[in-house]
Nucleic acid binder design. Structure first.
Lengths: 331, 331
DNA sequence: TTTTCTTATGAAAACGTTTTCAATATAAAT
DNA sequence: ATTTATATTGAAAACGTTTTCATAAGAAAA
């Protein structure tokens, strides 16, 4: 790749002048500018990003990092797309890591990102990395959390109204006449699981339906737990007539069980899942689901992060996006 | 972040010595090393990647780029994971772009990656960017192509045995007694579509079954085209008894149509899709599909790329990975 | 004419590394 | 005692930018 020096040589000016031209500095003679621009084009010059990063101090490096726990989850795929689009639209670059729920890896990746000189980080935190995140915050690295916060620490974040989303879903089920609705949540400890559970309770309360604790179970974010728990639930003698699944992998597992058991949807059991998926409509029957605006979450997160990079001391904000209940054929 | 200078100061040595220590250079007194290491730990020092990149010349920067056309496609998600794992295992970093079939964006992203100083690029090429890719090759930037090659140019690549995979799938259908098997391919012009079509023909030839050209259609990589084409096919009076779908989005669209039409799978129509998906088993009925080892493709691609970076002039290689036919309940 | 402003330009420092070269001290060989 | 080899260290250059400062040439003002 050609460097400033090469261009300067070709255009017979100093590298300072070339720098001025490519940075649109006004103090340069129009004729000179023309000559330099010509040389730039001829040599296909692009300023070296890492040389720039070396020169400019942290916060102006035009690089952010994104850390998601599981890129196989379509929700995070949407987030990634949103982040990517917004980042490049702002003339930044993004480096991404997918830490697959592995604590060691997450810590390593965060270190790598710091070494890369990111101006800030967007993280979907899991329990494993709250320590690391606190450390980053102490070091004043701009951070935006997505999907879920970390209780007790003050940081920008963008999330979704989990509680409302869940209660909407359960209300739909209730409106269809269901009285025995099971909730299969994700990992019990994480905030989203709790909030969705709250929403489940809210709906029951609103319609004065008694909650049967036996119909409430927590698993994790693997389809296997959906499969196993739904099997347990559906083989009760007094089985639930509807399932509300706390995340998309659990939904998938539950679906598998329902089909294996030969139950009809929605006549034998209805099901609604938190998290819509691009192929929900291709399922048989098409899945009723709660859509989380992952793409929008990604975009918002970038917006907040760039704001904070610009203005490191402003007070932390939290943006809450709406979910959307998409009624198809499983309810 | 602490710099070499800070560490040097704290340890009372020159930055050269610190550099030697962190690079495991042998010419340093054990006592000195201990002192330096202590300072490194205390200051939580990590060498700045971009400063390193500035110093070392292209090919030693420990950074590669990955460009995939569509990260919403689960196949590419696997590729991404494979690349990521392999890259970090080799102490490299990766910067990723998802160009969503958009020519402008692809070109922009490639330029960004060059400016970032990548040592090499892994690209799943589409027709739009062959020009750009040729240019890169002329500039001697190490490149590995995945998924599909570009006819007429010599470059490393890793792909899957599309032809064999397709013929296996169609043979399975034939073995189940099907004689009227439709093929719904992706974009007609791209190599994978053609090869899968070849495989379709191979199987027919092998079992001496006449091919009905009316059952062969090409669409693109969107589920809509699967939906529309399958509808056209299945509403013929002499309709096919089985569908072989050329990519996973087409499969999804076809599934939607089949359900809408109220046809039973596999008794009314059987279906097998190229590309397995993590949730194939949750479909109703669970989908028979051809699995492409995306993760392995990603890993191989990195392996090849690092080899080429090491040895830029070696002759180009092509590795072909096997597909795997996963028989579930739609055949 | 002299002074003061602009405008246009370049030299040089700085960013944080790696690497080459030179310098010193000590040990080994003569 | 002198030379030679070895081990350990540091100074300085280089990588490609941005930015500060200085300078020169005109233009405007006095």
């Amino acid at each position: 790749m050609a460097s400033l020096k090469d261009v300067a040589q070709k255009a017979n000016v100093s590298i300072t002048t070339v720098s001025r031209v490519i940075n649109n500095n006004k103090n340069v003679n129009p004729d000179t500018r023309r000559i330099v621009l010509k040389a730039v084009k001829e040599l296909d010059f692009r300023p070296s990003k890492f040389a720039q990063r070396l020169r400019v101090k942290s916060g102006k490096r035009k690089l952010v990092g994104l850390i998601v726990p599981d890129i196989q989850n379509p929700f995070y795929v949407d987030v990634v797309r949103g982040v990517e689009d917004m980042v490049y639209a702002n003339d930044y670059a993004v480096i991404m890591c997918n830490f697959a729920q592995d604590e060691k890896k997450a810590s390593l990746y965060i270190d790598i990102m710091r070494a890369e000189g990111v101006d800030g980080l967007i993280i979907a935190p899991t329990i494993h990395i709250v320590g690391k995140i606190k450390e980053l915050i102490k070091n004043a690295l701009p951070i935006v959390l997505i999907d879920r916060g970390i209780p007790g620490i003050d940081v920008d974040m963008v999330e979704v109204d989990n509680r409302k989303g869940a209660s909407n879903a359960v209300e739909l089920l209730i409106s269809k006449g269901h009285k025995r609705i099971a909730y299969i949540g994700g990992i019990k400890e994480i905030p989203t699981s709790k909030l969705r559970y709250q929403g489940y309770l809210d709906a029951h309360k609103k319609y004065k339906i008694k909650v049967d604790k036996d119909l409430i179970e927590f698993g994790n974010s693997k389809s296997e737990s959906g499969r196993i728990i739904s099997e347990k639930l559906l083989s009760k003698k007094n089985r639930p007539t509807a399932l509300f699944c706390g995340n998309n992998l659990i939904t998938l597992g539950a679906l598998e069980t329902i089909h294996n058991l030969g139950l009809k949807i929605p006549s034998d059991v209805a099901i609604v899942g938190f998290d819509d998926m691009p192929w929900s409509i291709s399922l048989n029957p098409p899945l009723t689901a709660i859509f989380q605006p992952g793409y929008e979450i990604g975009r918002s997160a970038v917006r907040m992060l760039l704001d904070r990079i610009d203005e490191p001391n402003k007070t932390c904000a939290k943006v809450t996006l709406k979910t959307q209940l998409i009624e198809r054929k499983t309810t």
